[in-house]
Structures are given as structure tokens and as C-alpha cells.
């Protein structure tokens, strides 16, 4: 295909122009995060990495991030474990009611948190579970399990049957086949699933907002939103907090980019 020099140059302009448009808002917040937090700070210079320390301590982002780490650890561990088991059943076994059960799980991928949050709050309040880590985590485990079951079923169905059958002929139990053959073989698919579940949990807003009405149990995005409501002045600290909240997922994205992109594109359910 022959392409003129002019068109090639135009393409580079498009490439750079779009990149600038995407990066500009991100740069705005980065610059704000390093800018002086007050007039007296401005006299000491223009570059203030100390904002991050202030946000971490005074802005309490340290404790918000710790809460987020705890919630993410619970959600990802539980959801991955449960999804491996259910995906294994749906992907490698035949049983009555298989399709009905599977579609029931698929339903969960489409149901928005808005459809379940109202009764969840009032029922969990009756049980005395609001303001606990479980009220924040378990609904998100349920959401992630719906996706994880779908995702792992796809992987298990794609595994070559002869691998499983050879192991079974050698006398391996179905548990052994799962844990010592299929799981190690499925590392790429499992990594993608872990990465997506971590991102969804870390970035989730509505569920932690509603489930901790006293504010004693705040995840990082929630802490950030409330910080913004309280301090209209401290733009620099707010920006520093925003960078801290975004950082874990963005770093992971730079490391495991292919998993993010493939997961979000393949994960779209095609009926």
C-alpha cells in the first residue's frame, strides 16, 4: 500500500494531537499536585512534593488507602477462589440445569449496583453489618463472581480435552486436575481476571459510599470525594490526594497493560 508523505505527516499530527487531548487533564492534576498549597509556601519555590506527605497524613489518605487495600484483598481473594471453582464446573462438566444456572450468573454482569444498593443497605443495617468491611466487600465479591464465573468458564472450555483426560487416566482427582494442572496453565487468563477485579474494586464508589454511613470506614475514592466537599481551598492537597488514589491502578496498568486492554475488550459479554 503506498501512502503519500502528506498523509503520513497528517497521521502523526492526529496521533500527537489526540495524545495531548487525552493527557492534558491528567497533566493538569499532576501540576496542581506539585504546586504550592498556600501563599507562604509559594514564596519557598514552585515545586512542592511535600503536598503528598501532607495529603497522606493531614488529609488522612494513608488510612483511606489502607482501607482500600484491605477491601481489595478480601474481594479479589474471595472472588478469584469462588470463580475458579464455579468456572471449572461450568467449563468442564455436564450437569442438569447447567444453562439456567449459567445465565443466572451472566445476569449479574449487567445488573448495575443501583439496582441492589437500596435493599442491601436497609437489610444489612437490620443485621447490624453496615459500617463493617463485610458490607463494603461482599456485594463487590458477588459482582466480581458473576464476571469471574463467565471468564473462567471461557478459559476452561478452551483447554484441550486430552490434557484433562490424560490426567484423569493417571488417576488424578478432579480437584488435582484443577489445582495442579489447569490453574498453573491458566495463569494468563487468571492474571487478567485478578487485574480487572482489583481495578473495579479499587475504583468503586457507590457501594462504599452507601455501606458506611458513619464514615468510619472510608475507601480511597470516597475519602477523596469527601475531602473535596470539606476543603474548598486546598486545591494542591486535593490534587495530591487524587494522584495518590489513582496511582496503584495506573502503575499496575503500565506493568500489565495487555491484561487490562484484553480483559476489558474480551470481557464484554457477547450473547
Amino acid at each position: 500500500m503506498r501512502i503519500g508523505v502528506g498523509e503520513r505527516a497528517a497521521n502523526y499530527i492526529v496521533l500527537v494531537g489526540v495524545s495531548v487531548l487525552v493527557l492534558a487533564p491528567i497533566l493538569t492534576i499532576l501540576i496542581a499536585a506539585f504546586s504550592p498549597a498556600s501563599a507562604s509556601a509559594a514564596r519557598e519555590g514552585a515545586f512542592h512534593p511535600g503536598n503528598f506527605v501532607a495529603a497522606w497524613q493531614e488529609g488522612r489518605f494513608g488510612s483511606y488507602m489502607a482501607t482500600s487495600v484491605l477491601v481489595a484483598a478480601i474481594v479479589v481473594t474471595l472472588a478469584v477462589g469462588l470463580s475458579l471453582l464455579s468456572g471449572y464446573a461450568f467449563g468442564t462438566m455436564t450437569f442438569r440445569g447447567q444453562n439456567v444456572l449459567f445465565y443466572l450468573f451472566l445476569l449479574g454482569i449487567m445488573v448495575p449496583a443501583e439496582a441492589i444498593i437500596v435493599p442491601l443497605f436497609f437489610d444489612l443495617r437490620t443485621l447490624g453489618l453496615t459500617d463493617t468491611v463485610w458490607a463494603v466487600s461482599l456485594p463487590q465479591v458477588a459482582q466480581s463472581v458473576a464476571f469471574g464465573t463467565y471468564w473462567m468458564r471461557t478459559y476452561f472450555r478452551g483447554v484441550n480435552r486430552s490434557v484433562i483426560e490424560a490426567a484423569r487416566l493417571d488417576g488424578a482427582s478432579s480437584q488435582r486436575v484443577l489445582w495442579s494442572i489447569l490453574v498453573p496453565m491458566g495463569r494468563p487468563a487468571i492474571t487478567t481476571m485478578v487485574v480487572l477485579m482489583f481495578m473495579w474494586t479499587w475504583n468503586e464508589f457507590l457501594i462504599p459510599l452507601v455501606m458506611s454511613p458513619s464514615g468510619s470506614f472510608r475507601t480511597a475514592p470516597l475519602g477523596l470525594a469527601l475531602f473535596q466537599g470539606q476543603y474548598t481551598q486546598g486545591t494542591a492537597l486535593l490534587a495530591a490526594g487524587a494522584v495518590l488514589v489513582a496511582l496503584p491502578v495506573v502503575l499496575l496498568y503500565f506493568l500489565l497493560q495487555r491484561h487490562f486492554i484484553r480483559g476489558m475488550l474480551d470481557g464484554a459479554v457477547k450473547e
Partner: peptide
């Protein structure tokens, strides 16, 4: 020698999913 039936494998996932998504829905 199959070990747990498919239903047993699905049960834990379904309990959490049912209690925290299907039931509230």
C-alpha cells in the same frame, strides 16, 4: 473418583452471588 459434584463446586459462588446480588435485586 470424580470428587465433588459440579453442584458442590458452584455452591460457594452461588451462595455469595445469591445473597448479595440476586436476592437484593
Amino acid at each position: 473418583s470424580a470428587g465433588p459434584t459440579p453442584y458442590l463446586l458452584i455452591l460457594p459462588a452461588f451462595l455469595v452471588y445469591g445473597a448479595f446480588l440476586l436476592f437484593p435485586l
